[in-house]
Structures are given as C-alpha cells and as structure tokens.
C-alpha cells in the first residue's frame, strides 16, 4: 500500500514534468532510493508496472532504481557511520545523540525523454 502511494505521486510528478518540458514520451526514469526509506523495491516495481500503463507519457518507460546508502552522523564524537549496520547508537563512542544524514530519500534523479 505504501509503495502504491509513492508510485502514484511519482507518476503525477512525471506528468507535470512532461507538461512543463513539452515531452511526449519518457523512455527511462532513474530514481534514487534511500537504504532506510522504507521502500520495498519489488513491490515498488510491481506498482510501477501497473500504473505506468495508465499514463500515456510513461507507458514504455523503464524504471531504474539506484540505492543511496544510509549514513548517520554522531553529534558527540563528530563522526559518520553506516546506519543499517549500527542503528541509532554510535559504534565509536556509544552516544545516542545521532542523526540520519542521508538514506531516507526518494528522488527522481533524471529522465530520458523526447
């Protein structure tokens, strides 16, 4: 259900881009998906295959997913560490004063279109 909602918004944003740039066909969509964005890529691709048929501009588009590794910043010792491996607690100083730097995004990086 979650993936379906994101695909709906993706298709809408792409429709708007096509209108602005006067595009008739989008051949490829490159999406950057954060490692901890909560998006299941299998479900996402299934939802994409279903919805793209409903948007004339997208009907032959190929979806390419790139992963953005999740990185957390430790405010106590001012270091970065991989989020998925260590979670909320800093592996160097064991502080909990940590913030996610990246890895939660879902960004349309580029499209190939005419």
């Amino acid at each position: 259900m979650h993936e379906m909602g994101i695909v709906l918004h993706l298709a809408k944003t792409l429709d708007e881009t096509a209108e602005q740039e006067r595009l008739t066909r989008i051949g490829k969509v490159v999406l950057q998906v954060g490692e901890v964005s909560g998006i299941m890529t299998d479900l996402f691709t299934d939802a994409w295959e279903y919805f793209k048929g409903r948007h004339p501009v997208l009907k032959d588009s190929e979806l390419v997913l790139e992963t953005i590794p999740a990185v957390t910043w430790c405010d106590a010792c001012k270091r970065e560490y991989p989020t998925v491996q260590y979670g909320k607690e800093c592996p160097y100083c064991h502080s909990g004063e940590t913030w996610l730097l990246r890895g939660n995004e879902c960004i349309i990086k580029e499209i190939e279109a005419e």
Binding site: I6, H9, T13, E110
Partner: peptide
C-alpha cells in the same frame, strides 16, 4: 531521446 536532470523528490507535486 534527451537526458533531463530532474533532481526532485518523488513527492514534489504533493509538496
């Protein structure tokens, strides 16, 4: 086909 850099969040239209 031309390559267009979008660099926008998927939810940009919602925002």
């Amino acid at each position: 086909m031309k390559l267009i850099t979008v660099n926008a969040s998927v939810t940009a239209s919602n925002d």
